[in-house]
């Protein structure tokens, strides 16, 4: 076999790819579900925490900062492994899927809180005062005046961060979540051919390349308006 043929045989072996296409497609669906759960719960929790922080309670703010710092400083894989292998000691064994979801959602929430909070801080104090003095309540001010401006600033960094954290679904392969990477790795060891990995990488590109392109667009669009 020539070098090129050997390359095709190893990395783009159609017979092997056809064989493992169904399992990688199943992994793809699981990855999409996991990603959707992480994004929805992580962003919602992050927004909620930023709103709680704007209440101005010292104790609450301190607790939120502590939470954020913790989840920004510790690698998500360490936390996933800790939950998955540690919790059974307490007689409670969540699946790898649940561990990955919970950890990545909390990490996303921590980053989202920081970004939204920075957005809220950037809205001039006078806007709060003007809105309150026209008779709007605290939450009405937040919802109708402050958050729309804060979120506009937050959207570009938030998109980038969401993509970066959602890519962490691949970490689930370490704790027996049969997402794309786990399926592809299993395919490689069964077939002794790395083509399933090529297919797995392509599956991730199908999932994330549109998101990266979208993030670029959002970045360009909101950069002007600052």
């Amino acid at each position: 076999m020539s070098g090129w043929e050997l390359f095709l045989f190893s990395f783009l072996n159609l017979r092997v790819i056809a064989e493992y296409l169904p399992s990688i497609a199943a992994g793809f669906l699981l990855t999409v579900q996991l990603a959707a759960l992480i994004i929805a719960s992580g962003l919602a929790l992050g927004l909620l925490l930023a709103v709680l922080r704007s209440l101005g309670s010292l104790v609450l703010s301190f607790a939120i900062v502590l939470f954020v710092d913790l989840f920004r400083a510790i690698p998500p894989l360490v936390l996933i492994v800790l939950l998955y292998f540690g919790l059974p000691n307490l007689g409670f064994a969540p699946s790898g899927f649940v561990c990955t979801w919970v950890v990545l959602a909390l990490v996303l929430a921590a980053f989202a809180e920081e970004i939204v909070w920075a957005g809220i801080l950037s809205v001039p104090r006078g806007q709060w005062e003007a809105a309150r003095s026209t008779g709007l309540g605290f939450f009405a001010t937040l919802r109708c005046v402050v958050l729309p401006q804060a979120l506009r600033l937050a959207i570009a960094p938030l998109t980038n961060r969401t993509i970066a954290i959602t890519k962490g679904t691949a970490l689930g392969s370490v704790v027996a979540v049969s997402e794309i990477l786990a399926q592809a790795s299993a395919g490689v060891s069964f077939s002794s051919n790395p083509s399933p990995l090529t297919l797995g990488a392509l599956a991730y590109l199908v999932l994330f390349a549109p998101m990266v392109l979208l993030a670029r667009r959002i970045e360009r669009r909101f950069a002007w308006r600052r």
């Binding site: 890519k167 679904t169 590109l205």
Partner: peptide, 23 residues
């Protein structure tokens, strides 16, 4: 740049570690 931003780093690592030896 976008290619490597879209690919999860763990996938890249597993590919380099487990795939390239076949080449």
């Amino acid at each position: 740049v976008d290619l490597f931003r879209a690919l999860p780093p763990l996938v890249l690592l597993v590919f380099v570690y487990g795939g390239l030896p076949f080449a």
